[in-house]
Design a binder for these strands. Sequence first.
DNA 1: CCTGTATGAATGAAAG
DNA 2: CTTTCATTCATACAGG
Lengths: 229, 229
Amino acid sequence: AGGGGMGVGMGAAPGGGEAMEGALYVKVMTDEQMEVLRKQISVYATICEQLVEMHRAVTAQQDSLAGMRLGNLYCDPLMSSGCHKITARQRWTPTPMQLQILESIFDQGNGTPSKQKIKEITNELEKHGHISETNVYNWFQNRRARSKRKQTIALTNNVDLEVETEVDSPKEKKCKPDNFQSIETPTQRVGDSSLQGHEIYSGLYPTEPDLVKVQGNLPLYGSSKSSGS
Amino acid sequence: AGGGGMGVGMGAAPGGGEAMEGALYVKVMTDEQMEVLRKQISVYATICEQLVEMHRAVTAQQDSLAGMRLGNLYCDPLMSSGCHKITARQRWTPTPMQLQILESIFDQGNGTPSKQKIKEITNELEKHGHISETNVYNWFQNRRARSKRKQTIALTNNVDLEVETEVDSPKEKKCKPDNFQSIETPTQRVGDSSLQGHEIYSGLYPTEPDLVKVQGNLPLYGSSKSSGS
DNA sequence: CCTGTATGAATGAAAG
DNA sequence: CTTTCATTCATACAGG
């Protein structure tokens, strides 16, 4: 499935193809808009995927015998094979300078930079490269979590010397025995791939002309509001 | 390829002189690319519709025959790393369909759903996977908080300059052309409207679509362009 | 070229 | 409601 296609070459690529004249009238999308789009498509992709599987299961059931295929569902390699993604999500990478500054701020011990602080920091770091407040925010979040985790692991390792636990892999994820709300419904679950970056393959199905009727009337950005309660 | 690049056309960082990223680069889409993209989404939408219809037909047929529950395929979502517990998920993850429903409800603007409302919603969503009222409650809390934060940041980006402005004394105006995720609409968040309303899932649960008002007649994105800041 | 690791980002849940 | 924590996913990048 999915072979060829193409994929909506997004992402500028000023060098490819015949670029536009002077780049004066182009459609510019912000990252955020891009994100929205990407997410939307991901959802569509996911839904399609699910529906296809459903349909397969159902037809298979018709074909052979009931229940035969139900336990034999194939997890589509959709997510593992890196085919064309709609947009490679760009990830902010701190420049050495930025990293240094961030580290030093972090080391000052001010636990939570808080919005105002973040804004300042961001403005400062902007001089050394692209960055946004979100980046800073995330960085601190991750930083804190990370150090905490490391301590925990170290601690666990310490205890490990005495009580022989199975913790020895640095990247081991502890299987917490906790189970509070998931186990109660073993039969449910329609399939829940988190739509966190699904690849989209355009060649999914041959598109019959009469199939495509919605043509351009997709609700890309719905009317939204933030009026409080 | 090294460079992290995000941010649309960050014109800032005048004093840094670092900018190994090269010139300003914005994400642009040509009309052609835009067209392709839209078409693709259309195709997806159509495919979804078709599949839904197929599925509905088949299940209707099957239901009377075998009477067993279909569509409850369970494809182990824990694909990479981690423990091998199939049934123990410690964190609820909304299925795409649940997500869509939630989004659409959220977009209807009725702020924090009342207890009663939450109960209803939960009940509705249960048809698409296990979920609890707490999940719904949390989801709305998070959704609201995050969209709010986003907006705040965007606004801040537009209005800042009050604290850090002169430290750099740039020879140009400090107003960034269009900064990442601040391009517009203080009154309407672009970031999280997402895909509400579509006939997609209206067919997925024949029971009571009343709850989820699919406002399938949404205008497309025409107006979400960078308006002046 | 493929695999493993570090880390930015997303988000459910909980604390305040 | 707002802020924080914990977990997970995906990607950039180094190593084989």
